[in-house]
Amino acid sequence: MLSIKNLHVKLEDEDKQILKGVDLEVEAGKVHAIMGPNGSGKSTLSYVLSGRDGYEVTDGTAALEGEDLLAMEPEERAAAGLFLAFQYPVEIPGVGNMTFLRTALNAQRKTRGEDEISAGEFLKLIRDKAASLKIDAEMLKRPVNVGFSGGEKKRNEILQMAVLAPKMCILDETDSGLDVDAMKLVADGVNALRDAGRGFLVITHYQRLLDHIQPDVVHIMSDGRIIKTGGPELAIEVEKNGYTDIVGEVA
């Protein structure tokens, strides 16, 4: 599904190498988690994959189902099936949440050569998905993320994911700023989307999210590289002993 090979990334404006050779394969139907200390390059990886400005790929490749992601515009990556749930969802005053979602969905369908969804069908789809995330009609009408609490913003990310139904979902620190109840809602939303055709990459600093979203594979990232890969037990080890031991042991 997602195939990253020897990915090297530096900041565009600065001579600072962030990713120093990342190799990663996420298969369809699997949930991979990336854990790592602050500054290890986890979020940079998600930004580079989604096509954010400010980074320069100096070496390596990233492909989604064989298609070169790095050659695509952000909107093309989205249409190809890549979705990034943002660590800090952006507030967009003046753009209604519904308008935003319908515009996004139809833009993706158009790019893929599919027909636009009708207003009625869209309404049915969004009501259905919103209800399970406890997002009410009022929230759907408000401008995108404006005045949303931290938990509401993250739920809104998962709603977008559910409506857009991507093939490959990247969740960047989705647990940050969430209380236990909100985390459970978000995790339930993610788990509902798990299926054989979809891959997940869950980026997190703490293990607690992984209690709710059970990963198949756990990677530890440090200083721009994946230094260790294992099963769910690796996350528990981190929770118990912190990152220092693992980083030390590899170095």
């Binding site: 515009e73 909107e75 943002f86 952006v90 308008t99 996004a104 790019t111």
Partner: peptide, 22 residues
Amino acid sequence: ALFYLRARGVPRETATDLLVLA
């Protein structure tokens, strides 16, 4: 905001127009 919209699949020009109207 422009990147957020594009990351959801809205092409740059359409996204710009949405922000302009907003």
